[in-house]
Each structure stands twice: as C-alpha cells, then as structure tokens.
Simulated assay, not measured.
Amino acid sequence: MSYGLRAGLPHVDDMPAAEIVLVGPVTRDEVSGLCSDVRALLKRTGAKVVICDVAALGPPGLTAVDLLARLELTARRAGGRIRLRDPDPALPALLDLVGLRFEMEGQPEQREPARCVEEAVETGDPPV
C-alpha cells in the first residue's frame, strides 16, 4: 500500500477560513454591524478563522483597537478566531501596547518562552 505525501501542514492548511475586508475609518456605530457580519460569516461558512484584511482600515488608533478587540471577542464566542492580513506596521505595536495579541497572516506563531528553564553552568565560568 502506498500513498503520496502532501506539502504543508495538513491540520493547519485544511482549516477553512473566511475573509472580510475592513475599510476605514470605522465609526462606533458600524462596530456592532461588523460584529454581526463576523458572527454570520463564521456560521454560514463553518470556518474557524476569519481573515481580516486591515490594509484599508486607516491609521492605527484606539478606534481600530476597539474594533479588532470586539471582532475577536465575537469570533471567540462563535467558536472561531481572527487573523489579521496586511496591517499597518504600527498596528501590531499598538495592539501589543494595550495587551492584545492577534495572529498575523504570514508570520510564524509566537509562543511564550518556557518557564523554569535554567541554563547549565560550566565549571570554571565566572559568576554573573
């Protein structure tokens, strides 16, 4: 019995993803409608990931942070998550500043460093 191997990671590459394009500036009144759109998109497509193209969102600010936080919360409640595509370089820094972590398309997943890991000390090394 033989079979061919596919390139890539099957469990990651086979995950369906839905896409939405966010065009700014987004007002506070539009946020609830966008959250409803994300919820409906996840339900309709059966996807677990919503890729948000944020290239046209405009300059990063607290309104964008609020929008993305609400979209992420909506997606999580619906059993999915948000992945950002083509963010302004300042947006990930701003999100990090306020304590929000988003997966960025095309970037490797960042993990926390292992806890309780000690570096081995060679005998004869001067104390630090």
Rank of each mutant, 00 (worst) to 15 (best):
L95K: 00
R101S: 05
V21E: 11
D66Y: 09
A40E: 06
V128F: 14
T63A: 15
E112G: 11
G79K: 11
D66W: 11
R28N: 09
D13M: 14
G46Q: 02
P126K: 09
Q107K: 09
G46W: 07
P126C: 05
L9V: 09
G99Y: 06
D13R: 14
Q107N: 06
P87T: 03
G99N: 08
P25Q: 09
E30V: 06
L100P: 01
R70S: 01
E30P: 03
L91A: 01
E119K: 14
L67R: 07
G24P: 03
M104P: 01
A56Y: 11
A7Q: 09
D29I: 10
P60G: 02
L5P: 04
R28V: 06
I82P: 02
R81E: 02
G124P: 09
L73S: 10
K43T: 10
G58L: 01
T63D: 14
R6V: 15
P108W: 11
R81T: 03
C35T: 11
L62W: 13
E30N: 11
L95E: 00
D14Q: 11
V121L: 07
V98M: 07
D13S: 12
R6C: 12
R44C: 05
R115F: 12
P25V: 04
P60D: 07
P113K: 05
P113Y: 08
R28Q: 10
L71R: 02
S36D: 12
P25D: 02
T45R: 03
L5V: 15
P25I: 02
V98Y: 10
